[in-house]
Every structure is written in structure tokens, then in C-alpha cells.
Design a protein around this nucleic acid. Sequence first.
RNA 1: GCCCCCAUCGUCUAGAGGCCUAGGACACCGGCUUUUCACGCCGGCGACAGGGGUUCGAAUCCCCUUGGGGGUGCCA
Length: 504
Amino acid sequence: MTAEPADFLRVRFAPSPTGYLHIGGARTVLFNWLLARKHGGTFILRIEDTDQARHVEDSVGKILDDLRWLGLLWDEGPEVGGSYGPYFQSQRLATYENHARQLLETGQAYYSFETPEELAAMREKARAQKRVRSYVRPEPVPAVEQGLAAKAAGRSVVVRLKMPYEDIAVVDDILGTVTVAAEQHEDFVIVKSDGFPTYHFACVVDDELMKITHVLRGQEHLMNTPKHIALQRALGFSTPRYAHLPVIFNIDGSKMSKRDKEKAIKSGLPPPEIDVHDFRVAGYLPEAVLNFIALLGWAPGDDREQFTLEELAAAFTIERVGRTNARFDREKLLSFNTTWAAKLAPDRVLAAFKAFLTCTTNPPPKMRHADDDMLACVLRLCAGFRTFADVVKKSGFLFAADADVVVDEQARRKVLDKNECAGFDILAFLLPRLEAATDWSAAALEALLQAACEEKQVKIGAVAQPLRVAVSGSTISPGIGQTVALLGRERTIARIRRCLASRV
RNA sequence: GCCCCCAUCGUCUAGAGGCCUAGGACACCGGCUUUUCACGCCGGCGACAGGGGUUCGAAUCCCCUUGGGGGUGCCA
């Protein structure tokens, strides 16, 4: 038996720390992770923090946290280390410098001094002349000594790669072969004036040094790939296999950008979920999110739609990744979440619910600190729920102080005030009977309500609804018998009394 | 502008020349269940962007048009 070498398949996810993990990024991680998992390869996490201006405080921590929530753990990278570290690009500057020097010394790269204004003028001119390429390589190219001197003199200096004048073919496992013509290439910056490498340069150097074999990334990188290939050739590196994933949009076709979120917040609309963190806080299960995003751009080929991470890893192949952009349908995600919440083991749902309670801002404090038995009970009573946020909405009143139960205006009108306060009358009728009840079990209470219906000659709704509104403040709650049983006699009576006192 | 990618129900997709009077899921509509919300069950509506080829035969192959998207940064 011939064993595969340990690192025959190495993939990476390389986010830049500019905020939370985007849902599109999550799908990229997932596909990389699945590929590694399927083939027994290695999944590497690398932080591309080469843009000092865009760096957002603590965003690495947030990204790691979201990845852990999803259950997509990395084999090498921050916190876990590995043999090819460091895994932060900002800690690898010397490495990039060495490679840049090599390129400079072999004449494959050169120093360049144009000002932003000059570059803008070049761009404008190129557009007017309908050319793709805007940067014009100086002839001859400045000598290394000239560049060093300019730098010493305080001028803004970058390093550019001399792009070869030849067609470059990108062999893509999803898209096929994409060839970019020689005249399309231009000398691009590999080292910025602040001495940091650009994305292209750091990425190529690290992929080589970290022995990355497969690059799975978003389609927005497709046109970068010829640059990367040119860099690899100049440095004598090997070229990994490439696969570019289709893009994910909002349901209306707009981009799922952070800007959308900010815009919505500004105009007072509920912000759309676009970061993994948003879905966490909104009460989704990672199982559902993962399952749903897996199906954005990938399909098993049969009618199966429900997959655990393990099942995905077994079924996943790059060949079955599609080429068409997808829209993110929140309704379908909601449906997936409902399904997962119902089919997952109660223990798992409880654990996820507790995690939700610690990260969301809404729940009544007492709910957050309730014991497992109580929370498990609530989860049972809310069976069929769509998100954890719904569970809180439906059962939060169980954890509120009696004085904090405020009757919703609409509920009051519809259930209590209507028909000359029939609802209040029912409550007044119910009160002594509940006070006198000897058995406070859900079944006994249901029976008590049934008896009240018969006595008053009304349907069960006419009795259950006023009681529901009195104890919960709204028309939404778990089954009334169980709700009242769980609430207990004392609190139930107190709430009915408070409600009756509010009658005008 | 220029370069590149893409194109099946409203949405995610199955479909790799005859198995397709195009299958599934979500949404939607109708019904059932029902003390609220949700769940659940049954049924229905609904697509091969348009035009040319190739072929005995095309959703599937080729070309054009149209539409959508990406790139065109000292961002990644």
C-alpha cells in the first residue's frame, strides 16, 4: 500500500483582519475545509494583515471565534501554530524583503517612483485610448542604485514586477482554462512604499513557503491569477491548482456588502445578516448555516439537501462546484434552521441555545442564567421554532418579573377589550377557580379551562387567549396549560390580578 | 471604455444529445390540523433569456445578441 505523503493536499483560507467573517468568506472556508477533510489534507489559516490602514482592532479574534462556532477548525495557523509559521503576514516581512531583493537583483523587478497624480494621468490616458494597460514601463527601467538613492532621499518608492510579454493560461478546476493575452498584463506593485508587500506578492510567497497545493478562492481573484503565475515563474516557484468560486449576492441581486448593512442601519431598517456573527446573534444554528451555504454553488447531484459537516466532507468534490453566481435566500436558510433545530439531539440544541443566550443582547437576564432543566423545558415547549430568537420571543415572559409584563396594545384590544371587555370578564371568572385549584399540572389546568368553556358556553380560544395575554403580555406563547403550569400558581395569579387592575 | 466569467421555475439547484410532456428544495397559492405563534400533512402554480446553426434528434455542442457578474488600486 502506498501512503500519500502527509502534505499532498494543503489548502488555506487567508482573510485580512478588517472585521467579522463575511458569510461569503465562510463558504470559501467551508469548501477549503471540506476538500482537506475529504482527502486527509491540511487546512491552514493565514492572516493577511499587510494593510495597516484597513486593520480593524480585534478582528482576528472575531474571525477565529466565528470559525470555531462553525466548527471549521484549522490544522495550522494562529493559536495552533505549525511548521510553516508564522501565520501572520505582518510577522513575515523579512521573508518578503528577501524575495523582493532577489527579483530586483535578477532584473525581474524594478523600483518605480511615479506619484499618485502621474499614475492617475496614465490611467486616464489608457482609457481614452481604449487600452487595458495603463502603467507604462519606463525604458530603461531605473537601476537598483537609483531606487535606493531615491528612497534615501525620502521619495515614495515602490517595487514593480516586470510582467513578461506572453499569454498566461490559468488552469482552473471549476472554470476550465482561462487565458489572458500578453497585451493585458502590466507591471504591478509588489512592495508598497511603506515597505509592506502587496497582497499578490505576500500571497504567492506564502503559498509557496507554506506548500499550498490547491487554491480555492472567490471569483473576484480570477484576474489576479495571471499576476500570481508570473510571480511564481519569476521566483522559480511551483503553481498550485486553482479553483475560483462563484460569488454570493443578496436576494435582490445586490452585493452582500458591509456597506449595505451600514445603509440599512442608517435608514432605520433592520440590518441584513451578512457576517457569520450576524447569524449567530440572530439565533441560527451553525449546522443550518453550514448546510445552507454548502448548497450555494455546490450540489450533490441527487435530491439530498440535508447534510452534516461529515456528510458534506464525504460528498464534496470540486467537480460538482458550479460556475454561476448565487443569491442568498434567507427564507430557505430559515427553513433549514427549522429543520435542523427539530432533528438535532436535544443536548446539542440546548448547548447551542445557551451559547446564543450569551451572545445576544435581547433575552431577559434571568433567562440567561436559568438552569439547564428549565431551558430544556422551554425548548421542548417551543418545539417547531425557527430560530432561537423566536424561542426568546415566545417564552421570555416566563423569566420576567411580574411587574415587567406589559400587555401589548394590539393584544389588549383584540383579546381583552373586544366585546365589551369579554376577555376581562373571563379572567375575573377564571381567577377564583385558579386560586382554588388543587392540581397545578398542565393536564389539570387544561381540564379547568375546558370546564370554564362549558360553563360559559364559549370556545376554548375565548378562554385561553385572555389568559395567555394576561400572563405573557402577548398573544404568542407556548401551549397555555404548560405555560401556566410552568409559571406557577403564585405568578399566574399575580399577573391576572395586575391585568384585571388595568381594566378601564 | 477595455479584459474575463456566467446564463434551467421568484430563489438554490438536478440535468454532461434521445431516460425531459425538465426532477427536488425554499417561497408562493389552496386545503387539512389548530386555544396563539410556529410545526406538521395533502394538493396546486411555476423555468430551459432571444436568434441562428450542427444533428435523425438539443436544456444539453458551436456562433451571435441580450442580460447579469468580476477585474481594471501602493485593498485584499
